[in-house]
Amino acid sequence: MEIIRHALQDVAEIIPKRHEDARGYFSEIFKDDWFRTNVADVDFVQENQSLSRTTGTVRGLHFQSEPYAQGKLVRCLAGLIYDVAVDIRVGSPTYGQWISVELSPEKGNQLWIPAGFAHGFCTLSADSVLCYKVTAGYSTDNDLGLAWDDPQIAVSWPSVADANTLSGKDRKQPTLSSLGQYFRF
């Protein structure tokens, strides 16, 4: 597996090796011991999957607070995803900064987003399926978010991003300047 480090400390893009022939390919997409040694020493407790039917669907920016803070290992099973991580760790030299990675089944890449980061995505094609392992289960009381279009963060969303696709919850998320201090660097 190849690891690509991005500008945000602890966020990592992982590209599993594929063994291809005329029939297709074989790929080990996750190995616990490799992940713990090379990326993060965490336990995954749940795996989630979401389908977004239309191009331009925006979901996020989401995170969970302690004691249910989640690290996420995200990959795209169908379609094409513009995946975003935002550093919300108070005191971090990259606080409020973001990175994006296009995830696709063709590339097979994954994005590791540790606890302390908000996560969101925009679909770049119809019927996009996102699958992600998480380090803590879902908790309604700890389910929080950040405004996807906060000008202080200024995520450069793709032109297809459609605000009309936001959930009711995502339409009411706070900006970074009004967000509580949930994580420390």
Rank of each mutant, 00 (worst) to 15 (best):
I113D: 11
R59N: 07
C76F: 07
I153P: 06
I153Y: 03
R5V: 04
R36T: 04
P174Y: 11
T135Q: 06
R171C: 10
T135L: 06
Y68T: 01
M1G: 12
A12H: 14
E13M: 14
I99W: 11
H119I: 07
G108Y: 09
L73E: 01
T175L: 15
R59T: 04
F30D: 00
R18K: 15
R171D: 02
R5L: 08
S167L: 08
L77R: 07
L80I: 00
F44E: 05
V74E: 08
F35V: 02
A163K: 15
W148P: 05
I3N: 12
S167M: 01
L166H: 08
D43A: 12
A78E: 01
E47W: 09
F185H: 15
E13V: 13
D41L: 07
C76W: 03
V86T: 03
D143W: 10
G145F: 01
V39R: 07
T54C: 12
F117P: 12
R59D: 01
R171Q: 14
Y138C: 06
T94V: 05
T175W: 12
F117R: 13
V155W: 00
P174F: 13
G168C: 06
D149P: 11
L61F: 08
Q173M: 15
Y82K: 02
T37I: 00
Y138P: 13
R53C: 05
Q9L: 04
V39H: 08
Y25E: 00
W157L: 04
V39Y: 09
W34G: 02
V155I: 13
S156E: 07
L166E: 00
H6T: 08
I113T: 11
I113K: 12
E106F: 14
Q46M: 07
D83R: 04
Q97E: 11
H19P: 01
F121N: 06
T57D: 10
D141A: 12
L179V: 11
R59P: 08
G71I: 00
W112N: 10
G79C: 06
P67V: 00
D10T: 14
P151I: 04
K169C: 09
R36Q: 05
N109C: 14
G56P: 08
S128Q: 02
W157D: 00
H19W: 07
S104F: 10
W112S: 14
I153R: 00
V160N: 05
